[in-house]
């Protein structure tokens, strides 16, 4: 594995050069709410100790709302016009391992039978510069979903702070290597063994549950009354799904642009909404919040694993930090794990 060294000063110059080369730099904002584009390398603030923003960077690869196509009613029929796919080159700078992994996970569902051009174009145009994470709170559980604060999985390049003003940068993918090529003069040669030592010193969040245990328990206990208890206080908002780095459900609606034209929009949707499964007939197969909450857990830890061999969760803890009623998905998984262990 190739490794380079860079000083904080040079990192700023690197950012400056990227901006000049028409890359869009996207970073955690200073308020800790969401990721935002920066226009000046002075705004580059990265740290391994930053708290994860309330929203993930998902919205840049999977927009909260975007047009799929436009339609125009003409005398000789309906004309369809494709929407332009953005070719913006994006760099996610200083992403935590739990964020960096998200594009890989989502790409499985977006390329499973239909190839989703909207997602793919943006994903292909993205470079993820991951960063070792030293933030911990009671909601973090990346180690329980087979990730870790030092994992470069999903990153193209991976930053490791060696001291306050110096970083090591690991080249993880071929895409990352090509991307960094024009800027190599800013980097010095590094030694992967030194950073391996740093990795060893990082303390990891305690592993709370085995995801495989959760998967098989859910498969055998679909009607278990535990879900009733977990789901009864859920208020049915979409906060958890919308801040999640990997939740990818969407809704399609038509909007008019004028008297004879319109656009078809793709909007985020969430399985906790009562409208999510509502049929046109008025029948709702998931008619109470308990069933909807069970769906959320099952999709994350069972269905997605069964289908794509990937847990639909990166353990970032965003949904739990923000849940209006304090539902903590890490805690629920732990409880399910102990239910499974005690065979109840």
């Amino acid at each position: 594995m190739d490794e380079k060294l860079i000083t904080l000063n040079n990192l700023k110059i690197f950012a400056e050069e990227l901006l000049k080369a028409n890359y869009t730099l996207i970073l955690q904002d200073k308020q800790g709410i969401r990721w935002e584009k920066i226009s000046n390398s002075d705004e580059l603030h990265i740290s391994s100790k930053l708290k994860p923003t309330k929203a993930s960077f998902k919205e840049f690869v999977f927009s909260k709302t975007e047009p799929i196509f436009y339609f125009n009613n003409k005398n000789d029929g309906v004309e369809l016009i494709d929407s332009n796919l953005s070719a913006e080159k994006m760099v996610f700078f200083g992403s935590k391992p739990c964020d960096a992994k998200s594009i890989n996970i989502m790409s499985k569902v977006f390329n499973w039978d239909y190839k989703d051009n909207f997602f793919n174009t943006k994903a292909e145009n993205s470079i993820v510069i991951g960063m070792l994470c030293e933030y911990r709170d009671e909601f973090c559980f990346c180690t329980s979903v087979n990730l870790s604060p030092v994992s470069s999985d999903g990153s193209d390049l991976f930053l490791i702070p060696t001291d306050e003003n110096n970083f090591a940068i690991r080249i993880v993918t071929e895409k990352g290597r090509e991307f960094i090529q024009p800027f190599l003069k800013l980097f010095a040669e590094g030694n992967p063994e030194t950073t391996d030592q740093i990795f060893k010193k990082i303390n990891l969040p305690e592993k709370g549950f085995e995801s495989e245990v959760i998967r098989s328990w859910i498969g055998n206990n679909f009607e278990h009354k535990y879900f009733e208890r977990a789901g009864e206080i859920c208020l049915g908002c979409g906060q958890c799904a919308f801040v999640c780095p990997v939740c990818h459900c969407f809704d399609i609606v038509d909007e008019e642009c004028g008297y004879s034209c319109g656009r078809r929009m793709k909007n985020w949707d969430a399985c906790q909404f009562s409208l999510f499964t509502l049929h046109g007939s008025g029948h709702n197969p998931r008619h109470n919040q308990t069933q909807r909450y069970r769906q959320r857990i099952s999709h994350k830890f069972k269905y997605y694993v069964d289908k794509f061999d990937e847990i639909l969760c990166t353990g970032c803890g965003r949904c739990s930090r923000g849940c209006p009623v304090g539902i903590d998905i890490g805690q629920i998984a732990k409880e399910v794990h102990s239910l499974a262990a005690n065979k109840v």
């Binding site: 047009p67 436009y70 016009i81 642009c257 656009r263």
Partner: peptide, 8 residues
């Protein structure tokens, strides 16, 4: 209003 309006 112009957000996401088609420009040709």
């Amino acid at each position: 209003n112009k957000e996401f309006v088609l420009h040709e």
